[in-house]
Design a protein around this nucleic acid. Structure first.
Lengths: 209, 209
DNA sequence: TGCCCAATAGAACAAAAGTTAGTTCAGCCG
DNA sequence: CGGCTGAACTAACTTTTGTTCTATTGGGCA
């Protein structure tokens, strides 16, 4: 059973080249090729290919928007970005829209073949430069769950409970201290973080915005 | 100028195999190999290799902890995980600790060579299955910045201001409406989200836990 | 046209959050 | 040792939040 492919790419040369190459490759069948997102939008939901190879820069609607709209109709189809765009915004938008693989156009055809197989078996093949961007944002997001330096252990403990939306009374019960004590701790937390209420403290400590 | 490598791997067969292969490969120089994290901890800060190939499962200290400790001393050195572990926790811990590449041990040696070159030039080569995990958590984190379906436009607007820690009065001023109206909107927001206070609403709407 | 809903407003009240003040205790420093 | 500091604790008091009601306006829809 071969992997069925659709290609969305406006440049004749690239589109035809890909089609020829994949058609000759064992295990692949090119179901259709499209010059524009609008055409793809109509046919892909009917064809339901295993994989769509998608360019970003297209006349009219771009490839990312195309994925966003088509993905809901064919959730099983995997989207492989194949583009020259390497800037953060485009990359992240594409992944958010539903692309699972992301190769730059300088990728060799043999590597493309490998990547398509990996994509089809549930992986997310991507160029190393693209993966690095993901790693970077991942580290950014993660470091926001660590205890805050300036606060004492007790204060961090209370801040954590506070961030879950517990009442002073509930925090007090959980720690077996008086609610007055909780108040005091929280007051000191606000002081140290230079904020004036619960929400600001949580934003400051756990990073959002 | 060839890429200098250190290898940390307890299995003799794998360690020696890697060393032999890389030594023969053009453009690579193996500076040292280690059987344990403890040994690596001492020598890597001195050797400052371009790349460390790191196993996770080691006797004594594991490879992730080793990276965490060494990374601060040699920030320029890149760490390539090379392991059989594929479970989310290990993968994410490793990346957080400072690994930039992550290959599974079923990766071919030629692909390893390619990956090391990519790592050295600033990329994050990783097995497709590993990259998929990253894409998945990325999507999770991203979807938390979108307006909440069930709420009206006005309610979302107010929820956003609320999440910044503004007082009712400040929200009212900013929107040029009465504070009573703000109360009313917020009350309806809580109702729709099935929560009872500001913090719970924010957590529910913007995702954290 | 009549009905429903979102947005607006106000007011009274209860509950929770935030402020201020003060105690105890443990560790540090000269 | 005595004095100082910071963490943990408590309570009285003020401000903000959240609840409950009631009411008006304008838009969309059957």
């Amino acid at each position: 059973m071969s992997i069925s492919i659709a290609i969305v790419e406006d440049l004749d040369e690239v589109r035809n080249g890909l089609k020829s190459f994949l058609s000759l490759s064992k295990g692949f069948a090119v179901l259709a090729t499209f010059k524009t997102a609008e055409e793809a939008l109509v046919d892909i939901p009917v064809l339901k290919p295993d994989i769509v190879i998608m360019d970003i820069n297209l006349p009219g609607m771009n490839g990312i928007e195309c994925i966003r709209q088509v993905k809901t109709k064919v959730p099983a189809t995997q989207f492989m970005m194949f583009t020259v765009y390497e800037n953060d915004e485009k990359v992240f938008e594409a992944l958010k829209a539903g692309a699972s693989g992301y190769l730059l156009k300088n990728t060799g055809l043999l590597q493309l073949i490998e990547a398509l197989k990996e994509l089809h078996s549930g992986g997310s093949p991507m160029s190393a430069n693209i993966a690095r961007k993901l790693v970077t944002v991942f580290r950014e997001n993660e470091k926001k769950a660590e205890p805050v330096e300036a606060l004492s252990a007790r204060e961090n403990e209370i801040l954590l409970l506070l961030s879950k939306g517990l009442l002073y009374k509930e925090i007090a019960d959980q720690l077996s201290i008086a609610t007055g004590t909780v108040r005091q701790h929280i007051h000191k937390i606000y002081e140290k973080l230079h904020v004036e209420n619960r929400t600001e403290a949580i934003n400051k400590a756990f990073g959002k915005n």
